[in-house]
Amino acid sequence: MDRERKEFLEKEAKRIRYLTVDCIGSLGEGHIGGSLSIADVLAVLYNGVMNVDPENPKMEGRDQLVCSKGHAGPAVYATLASRGFFPEEWLHTLNQPHTLLPSHCDKNRTPGVDMTTGSLGQGISVAMGMAAGQKLKGSEGRVYVILGDGESQEGQVWEAIMFANQYHLDNLTVLLDYNKQQIDGTVDEVVTLGDPKERYAAFGFDVQEVDGHDVEAIENALLAAKEVVGKPQLIVLHTVKGKGVSIVQNAAFNHYMTFTKEQVSSMLAELSE
């Protein structure tokens, strides 16, 4: 990756963080921690890796994203707005009456959202059907899944990854947001994932592991995953919940936070530096 592209992707990731904070900040509360942790992978996916068209969000044969951790909707909305799927002003309608941007991702409301999610464990499973459907159509379309680490405690996740292996879904890439935090404590304190790389490899996945905030490493991993034949892929993204915004990153609990107007201004100022 040349320096220019790296700087561009880093700038896009920062822009996504800014718009995420602006979106949640307009309401004063929301799922901020797990939204900020996936800003970098979203920046890479939607700026060159995924075949999508903001003018034609339902384009046949496009690549699709399932944000299985549906509560990270604000980060997805920030990304889509930044790419021009809808006006950035919409971000201020988060969770307002009749909004097209509900707390959790909804494909029937938001242009560019490919699947409705919100009950953890289901998104990755639905993604299997999407990937199988794309293959059945003979389409080149790929399916990307952003999966939570705490979410991986849902049994359905493991039903789904067994299916991916059985049906050789090499057009499917799982992106594990391994920020190691969940509502009741750290993932290791609640129910550990052990080494997800080993576990997924044992389930027949091609596995990679990267710093989830290094856009160059993320892009290289995504491009390598595209070349894998016959196997679904996992990329473990080592991330920090709340990454990039001091108040959030340093908070003892940042899954869902409430902010004053002053705090929102301060967070936006930090992201404008």
Binding site: G121, Q122, V126, G133
Partner: peptide, 21 residues
Amino acid sequence: FDCGIAEANMVSVAAGLASQG
């Protein structure tokens, strides 16, 4: 598509297939 003894996945895989037409 036989999902094996995994009904939650069966229904969700079917939902994914439906979403693709």
